[in-house]
Design a protein around this nucleic acid. Structure first.
Lengths: 334, 334
DNA sequence: CTGAAAGCGCTAACAT
DNA sequence: ATGTTAGCGCTTTCAG
């Protein structure tokens, strides 16, 4: 079923059919309707691949997501799609093989699908690699700032500081940080934590999850919590890891927040559930997605504009997972 | 950057480059390596759209997902991808606009992307519409049986029966069902519930969420729970809805399972969390995804084979959200 | 083993 | 307003 068939059915040339479909001028309303009608009747669907090929200017937007099991990426996805709603650009998804993969391969597959631009959330590759990637194809980095590359992100150090400050104000001194894998560009939360701790004259304690899964978080934090000098509070890199820490705590018989205060990051839906009530830093993922979508559209329209650098402010949302440290821990205080 | 460029670089014809890339026979190892090498050097990437166009036989598989905020679809996605891992077929994703949309539009967009087959999880359209859709493009229905169409699904009536039976055995008599929107092909759980209730001589009580979101579930069930003759147990269509019911219960000051027993469906990760511990029916979503992926590959290889009808057995996973009805409710028992 | 040539379905000048 | 024509990048006969 091609435009040819439709043209024959209506008795016009193939060009007219093409014009009619793109709403291009130069077709009488009468013919246009006849064409659309016939297409409908024949069940004709455009071949987007062929159209892109002929157009020479790929207009599709590729969206790379690190992990479908972390709801923050769903938020970003829906945000991006909202931004593209009015635009004619198709949205093509690519999901990372694991929650700890570099984005190169996935972005490559997007390139093979001939997208005009890729929105990436989030790239674990080094700054240099991302910059090189951005040389190959227009790229918008979401939730991470990469110098010289369009970036739409939240101020991670500010969010982390607010989280740690909250813990300090509650009276905690033994505060640990549950970090993700140490990839460049994703150290802002950890660094801000370390800075805050050292400013407070407190020893930092960082534990690293092997990837961004709940299971990895459980494994990583279990020994720390089992230790006698265990922390009274944990600030996790994100909600998925925080939930992992929470599971580990309960497995060891500790309660949150009675024995352990917990802060996550992303303010995802899970953090809002009764009985979980995770204090979390909201980076406004849907808005991040919308901004990224808009940025992509602008970049497509104006390839030579200077790189966008769009930072937003996160917000600490206090819920029931944080409380003053337990009494027996208080005696250790200076 | 095209095959032409690579050919020129190596000093061979374009055809050779094409052959080399597809691993087709007829290229000496020497030339092949030289070609792959040059391609690498030049940063050449295949144009999948053009290749598909020329090949005339689209090999990509399109995967339609109803809702990215329901983790069961992530499970299905990863399952499908696992099944396609070895295959050369690309996987293209399409996500429903809302958690209550018919799949037609999304599948249409997949068709425009010229996929060879679509795997749909889950279609809310009527059986007739799905059958018509399957006429247009090869289709594998996941988690729903559609007569005459390749279907990979779990035995919903069996799962629902096990859930209701569990509740009955605990001594509940006022058991409500929280259903999703009443779309054809998604009534198996509700019907089995009704059957079980009537077999037990108990009045069924069905409440319907407007879509498959947690929020809709909360809205739907709130009046029921606020009622004086409220149920002592709720069997929800899936975990997302069950979590909505749980939120509604706590908002009204009821505890699960002390005041209200709750059963979900899907056994998604959220149901396994400490403090949620939702009794749930496991339909083995990852395996469903893998089976669907394999079925799609087989259909592609053998377009004329009779429709696949692959049913699997769900399993009730009992956790802490179900318990005997509260004492004050016992007095109402016959 | 290599190359020439046709054509996939569509767009976009360029005619008429 | 409508038709002609030349590609887009690739695969695939068919001849060397």
């Amino acid at each position: 079923m091609t435009q040819e068939d439709v043209a024959r059915e209506v008795g016009v040339s193939r060009t007219l059919v093409s014009f009619a479909f793109r709403g291009a001028p130069g077709v009488s309303n009468e013919t246009r309707e006849a064409i659309l009608d016939a297409a409908q009747r024949l069940g004709y669907r455009q071949n987007a691949a062929a159209a892109d090929l002929a157009r020479k200017q790929p207009s599709a937007v590729g969206l790379y997501l690190l992990d479908l099991r972390n709801e923050v990426y769903a938020d970003i996805f829906y945000g991006v799609r909202e931004a593209l709603e009015e635009a004619p650009n198709r949205l093509i998804l690519s999901v990372s093989p694991t929650a700890n993969s570099l984005g190169r391969a996935a972005v490559d597959s997007l390139i093979e699908a001939r997208i005009g631009i890729v929105i990436a959330a989030t790239l674990l590759d080094s700054d240099a690699d991302v910059q090189e990637l951005a040389q190959t194809v227009p790229l918008v980095s979401v939730a991470r700032r990469v110098p010289g590359v369009d970036s739409v992100y939240s101020d991670d150090p500010a969010g982390a500081k607010a989280a740690v400050r909250h813990l300090l104000e509650l009276g905690h001194t033994r505060i640990a940080h549950l970090a993700g894998p140490p990839h460049e560009g994703h150290q802002g939360r950890r660094r801000a934590y370390e800075r805050m701790m050292s400013d407070a004259g407190l020893p930092p304690r960082v534990v690293t999850a092997e990837d961004y899964t709940q299971e990895a978080a459980e494994w990583a934090i279990l020994p720390l919590l089992a230790d006698s000098g265990r922390p009274t509070a944990v600030f996790a890199h994100n909600d998925v890891l925080a939930v992992g820490a929470r599971e580990a705590a309960y497995r060891l018989g500790f309660a949150v927040p009675d024995d352990l205060s917990l802060i996550g990051y992303d303010n995802s839906r899970i953090s809002r559930l009764h009985g979980i009530g995770l204090t979390s830093v909201d980076l406004h993922a849907p808005e991040l997605g919308r901004s990224a979508g808009r940025a992509a559209l602008e970049r497509l329209a104006n390839p030579l504009a200077p790189a966008v650098d769009l930072s937003s402010s996160p917000r600490l949302v206090v819920r029931g997972s944080t409380a003053p440290p337990p009494a027996e821990a208080q005696k250790d205080r200076p």
